Every structure is written in C-alpha cells, then in structure tokens.
Computed example of a mutant assay.
Amino acid sequence: MKNTLLSLMLADSGAMPALKVDCVPLPVGLLASESDFSVYFPVDALITLGPAQATPSARGVVALVGQHGCVGPLQKGAARMQAHVMVAGHAYRVDWTPVRDDPARYAPWLWHQTAAMQRRVSQIAQWSFCVQHHTPMQSLSSWLLHCLAQHPHADLTLSLNALPQSIRQWVDLSQAGARLAPDALAFNVCDGCLRMPSAPDLAALACPCHAQMSSDVASA
C-alpha cells in the first residue's frame, strides 16, 4: 500500500477478508463520497479539510491530508467539515461499515483513524495561531512543507485556482512583499501555478510553527 497509514492498519491481516478496498481517482474539487461510511487514504492526491462554514475566528484555515493520512467518514453534518481535492490523483477508498459494525475487532483501526483526525484538528489550531503571529511568507512556507511531506513526488506543482482561499491570500501577500524586496522572492508563480521550492529552501523560510506540528506520519 502506498498510503503509510492504511499500510499500518492492514498489518492486521485478519481484518482483510471483511474489508472492501478500491483504488479510485480523485479529480480536483469537492470530495463527494459515494457513501457516508467511506474513508479515503490518499496515494498521490492532496486533500484539504476545513470547516464547512468558515468563521472569522477560523479564518478559513485548512488542514492537509496526503499519503500519510485519511479523510472520512464524511457523514453529512457530523463534524461540519468539508474535504476538497487540491491535487488530483488517486486514493484507496475503504468501506468503513465493517469497522463501525465490529468495533472490538477493529479497535486498532479506530485508534489510528481517531489519531489521524486529531492531527488534522491540531493542524487547524496551529495554522490559526500562525496567521496571527507570523508573516504570510513564513506561514506559506510551513504549509508547503506539509504538502511536500504528504506527497510522493518532490517536483510538486500547485494550481493557484485549486488552493484554498486562505492559502491563495498567503501567496498573494508573499508575492507583494517580494516585489518590495526582490531578494526575498522564494516562490515561482507563473501561468496560474505555484512551483514548489526545495524542502531545505522552504525550511529556511518557515515559521517556528512547523516544528511544533505533530508528525503526519503514523507510528506503529
């Protein structure tokens, strides 16, 4: 499995016969689940997760999910969260019904899924703090480092139109600052796309929030 979290869960081989796992394509846009009990484990897609209705306090800050995490179940109104596919790709879709119906058998799965969701909540909380205390360049660099950590390819290019509004604002403010100080230019924005700098370049620009983030890589 190319999703580290799902690979860890499937190490319990006794759980496999009751599970339905499909590899499905995810186009850019709102993640529309076929079932209220589907969980998506991205492979090379990147998904943003945020409040369905952004409030002034949340400022539209979103968490990021990729090859080390999962999204779902996407029960309508359950957590008032929406998932959007930011980078098209593939994900493993798992029918969560057997897990829901037999929680004792799948207790390790439930623990890992709950831990993954907690990491998403922690991300949102940390970004909310970040936008109030650090520059857009610092916040954007830290967020892009998470993109690289969650994607299997280092040569990642992001469409500006697919970015969440709050992240696009960071890009615009960072570009405006760079025009005033050309030596500070760090991101190549051209033809509606943002081409990612190297991880070391991003790390040099990132705010301290990045070091405070809990690891997105699931531990055994």
Rank of each mutant, 00 (worst) to 15 (best):
A83L: 13
W143Q: 05
A58N: 07
Q150F: 07
L158W: 02
Q169T: 05
A88M: 11
V87Q: 02
G177W: 10
L74A: 03
V65P: 04
A154D: 02
S166M: 09
Q126T: 15
S139K: 02
V61A: 08
A181K: 10
R80Y: 06
Y92I: 04
L64P: 07
G66H: 04
Q132P: 12
C70E: 07
A79P: 03
Q169K: 04
V189Q: 01
G60R: 09
C70W: 03
H90S: 07
R100S: 08
G69V: 09
A54V: 14
Q169M: 05
C147L: 06
V94H: 03
R93E: 07
L160K: 11
T97R: 14
P136H: 05
Y106V: 11
V99E: 01
L148G: 04
L160Q: 03
N188V: 05
V87S: 04
H134S: 11
S166F: 12
Q165F: 12
S141C: 09
H90C: 02
L148D: 02
A149Y: 01
D172W: 11
T157E: 08
H112S: 10
L64A: 14
L144E: 00
L110E: 00
I124S: 05
A54K: 13
S57H: 14
P152Q: 00
Q175P: 00
V131P: 00
V99K: 07
L180T: 01
L140C: 02
P108L: 07
T135A: 14
R80V: 07
L110Q: 12
H112A: 15
A115R: 15
D102G: 08
H112P: 01
Q175S: 00
L185V: 10
P98T: 05
Q113F: 11
T55S: 15
S128Q: 15
P164G: 09
A181G: 05
T114V: 04
L64F: 09
A91S: 15
C147A: 11
V94Q: 01
M86R: 14
I167S: 00
P136E: 07
M86K: 11
P73S: 07
G89E: 04
A52T: 15
R93N: 08
T157N: 06
S128E: 14
D172K: 10
G60S: 05
Q118W: 11
H146W: 00
Q132I: 12
A79L: 13
L110G: 07
N161T: 10
R93W: 08
Q113S: 10
Y92A: 04
F129T: 12
G89L: 02
A149K: 08
R93I: 08
D155Y: 03
D102Q: 11
V99I: 15
V171C: 06
P108N: 00
A116R: 01
S57F: 13
P152R: 03
L173W: 06
P103W: 02
A181F: 06
Q138M: 13
R119W: 06
L160F: 05
A91R: 10
V85T: 09
S141W: 02
M86H: 03
N161K: 12
L180Q: 11
